[in-house]
Nucleic acid binder design. Structure first.
Lengths: 168, 168
DNA sequence: TTGCCAGGCTAACGGCGTTAGCCTAAGGTG
DNA sequence: CACCTTAGGCTAACGCCGTTAGCCTGGCAA
């Protein structure tokens, strides 16, 4: 990826982080770089390709955050790290987790890397790993979308969920 | 709501069910009714209001499906009913669960009604209810978006999750 | 010196939600 | 019966979107 392409991806990330996924517009993106929208197509085939790069960056960051969770093997700590990343970068998290994943446009392996800390923590039980992942994603996305009642004690829900999984 | 408004909502629902949320376009919707797009604004203030009505219908249907789950009080049966509805009406489910809920445009009480079967099943433990809801939503949306590896045994993941919750 | 080409540009297309403003037919009222 | 209101259509248009076609220019390589 060229130097210019990297600048474009960085600018796209900033747009998304500041204004949500809808704020990423080819024209707005070009504006931020001081060029015109059609020039972007010299570097990326379409908007989806730019988004995919941002998603790749976000997934790598999430993987890093999960790998750093302490103590290793602690499901509650892992859940807390997951939630912390999502709340720190809500728009990025939404972009990354909304709709089908453009797997063919992503750096290979980044998906597995993000999954590994959890898979290891549940003792390589695939069904359990998927269940915990679904729980964590559900908690985070419902929180980000404001679908829990205002004032709901989400820490209690996290704990109830993760304790139930850890117990087994 | 007038007769015509009802027809509009029904047509909107069909568009979404057939082509996904993006297929709901004011022009496409008007086409299906044999009128022009601007005429729709005689019946609804904007597109979001039409969508909100469709969401209201979908939520009522989901509530009905959950209330009908047998035997009452069985968390696995409730989960199965939830998943069955989502897979039967994937586009509707996505519309209903994606992004913030336009609560002020929804029929009052429909949200609580959809939640009640689960709340009752977990013995009115709010934290547990939210955790199970997050798990179920996560499982469904990840399945609909094709984010699990192809060939993953999702029934096993459902069972692992719901058993963990039921145990407590 | 000449030619190539990366990387800008303008103009434009079709689709989107939405608004302004017009028209017509039905129905209630004097 | 004549009149006025209004519900519910219509066309034209605006500003946004992603995207394409085609042009131009500056720097680098042969």
């Amino acid at each position: 990826m060229s130097e210019r392409a990297g600048q474009i991806v960085r600018a796209a990330r900033e747009l998304i982080e500041q204004g949500g996924p809808d704020a990423l517009t080819m024209r707005a993106l070009a504006d931020r770089l001081g060029i015109r929208a059609p020039s972007l197509y010299k570097h990326f085939p379409d908007k989806a390709a730019v988004e995919a790069q941002v998603i790749g960056v976000a997934m790598a960051e999430l993987a890093e955050a999960l790998e750093a969770a302490e103590p290793i093997g602690d499901l509650l700590a892992l859940g807390a790290a997951y939630r912390r990343y999502a709340l720190a970068c809500p728009h990025l998290y939404r972009l990354m987790s909304n709709g089908p994943l453009p797997r063919d446009l992503l750096p290979p392996g980044v998906e597995d890397r993000a999954a590994l800390p959890l898979v290891r923590t549940v003792g390589f039980d695939e069904a359990a790993a998927r269940a915990v992942w679904a729980f964590a994603h559900g908690m985070v996305i419902l929180e980000l979308d404001g679908r829990f009642p205002p004032g709901a004690d989400l820490s209690a829900a996290w704990e109830a969920g993760l304790r139930a999984f850890a117990q087994r």
